[in-house]
């Protein structure tokens, strides 16, 4: 079983469009599992028409709560909190309170309060789902707005997808990754067989490519690059190719700009299902190269 993650560093470069297409194309050759690891803004389900099979609660974070009746207003919690999460009372002698949005859940106030007025609550942080699609099982999740621990939720769904794949004899797990380079990206990247970087030929795209390739290198994950909307700027596309050649990283595709990608999204379908144009043709090339590449890993 091989795991491929689609990443980009910069957001909105076409990760989900490419991941859905790869899922479709791969499923024509072998049984696969799809995983949406962008848990704070997940979109993969919007183009896969999933049938929900199971829903699970996700708990991970903790939040401090001060019992106003027990608080002696000494201010020790505020003095120690490094996250500006303790709100001082308007008048002396009134109880302190916690800003639950700012609270990091470190429990320093809980352990240090001389009056033992602090308790740690464990709010639900989100949900994760197991669904079926025309292309294979889909594992996806929803981190509640503003909740912490997206990295842990990604780790959870990674494990679930892997278990489903191993149990069902699926050959590939195709992972739609989150943007950025932080905790959820790291959780989506560690231990995969290949990272496919979807990059637009822009100054931002190139800047961010360097950083996301750094993440892959840092965690020992081989990477390949797909240039999306390559014809927006041919000069920058060549710059990406040269940069990749220097690093011995293969450019596995150059996908042209076409509004058909948006039309497919509106129709709720992978672009390769929606139409048989130049985009589909190039994504077939991308998939065959990705497949050959992971066969070697």
């Amino acid at each position: 079983m091989k795991q491929v993650v689609v990443l980009s560093g910069k957001g909105g470069t076409g990760k989900t469009t490419v991941a859905a297409a790869l899922g479709h194309l791969a499923s024509q050759e072998a049984p696969i599992v799809l995983l949406d690891a962008d848990v704070d803004a997940s979109n993969l389900d919007l183009v896969l028409s999933p049938q929900l099979r199971a829903k699970h609660d996700f708990f991970s974070s903790k939040v401090a709560v001060i019992d106003p009746a027990s608080c002696q207003s000494c201010g020790r919690c505020q003095e120690l909190c490094r996250f500006d999460a303790v709100l001082a009372p308007k008048e002396d002698g009134e109880p302190y309170a916690i800003d639950s949005v700012a609270c990091e859940g470190c429990a320093v106030c809980y352990y240090q309060c001389p009056a033992e007025a602090v308790r740690m609550d464990e709010p639900q942080d989100g949900l994760w789902f197991r669904s079926d699609t025309a292309f294979g099982p889909l594992v996806h999740a929803h981190l509640y707005a503003g909740h912490e621990n997206s990295g842990k939720l990604v780790a959870e769904v990674r494990q679930q997808a892997k278990a489903i794949a191993l149990e069902g004899g699926h050959e590939y797990v195709i992972i739609d990754g989150p943007p950025g380079i932080g905790c959820s990206v790291i959780a989506a990247t560690t231990g995969v067989d290949l990272a496919l970087m979807v990059i637009e030929p822009t100054v931002s795209g190139i800047h961010d490519l360097e950083r996301i390739l750094g993440v892959a290198r840092h965690f020992g994950v081989p990477a390949v690059v797909c240039v999306n909307k390559y014809d927006i700027n041919l000069e920058k596309t060549n710059e990406i190719a040269d940069y990749c050649a220097d690093l011995d990283i293969e450019v596995v595709g150059r996908v042209p700009f076409n509004t058909i990608a948006t039309e497919a999204m509106v129709a709720g379908k992978p672009v390769t299902v929606y139409g048989d144009g130049l985009i589909t043709e190039e994504l077939r090339n991308v998939w065959s190269r990705v497949r050959d590449k992971v066969a070697d890993t």
């Binding site: 957001g11 909105g12 989900t16 962008d38 704070d40 803004a41 979109n43 919007l46 949005v101 700012a102 981190l143 707005a145 503003g146 909740h147 912490e148 997206s150 989150p178 943007p179 950025g180 932080g182 959820s184 948006t262 999204m265 509106v266 709720g268």
Partner: peptide, 28 residues
């Protein structure tokens, strides 16, 4: 702000007087 809705986004929004949300008219 960064993309997404997780803690770095919340930190970028906290204390703001106005939040301008840039979107594109697509399902995503």
């Amino acid at each position: 702000a960064p993309p997404g809705t997780a803690c770095p986004v919340v930190e970028s929004m906290r204390g703001a007087d106005f939040l301008l949300l840039v979107t594109e008219p697509t399902p995503f």
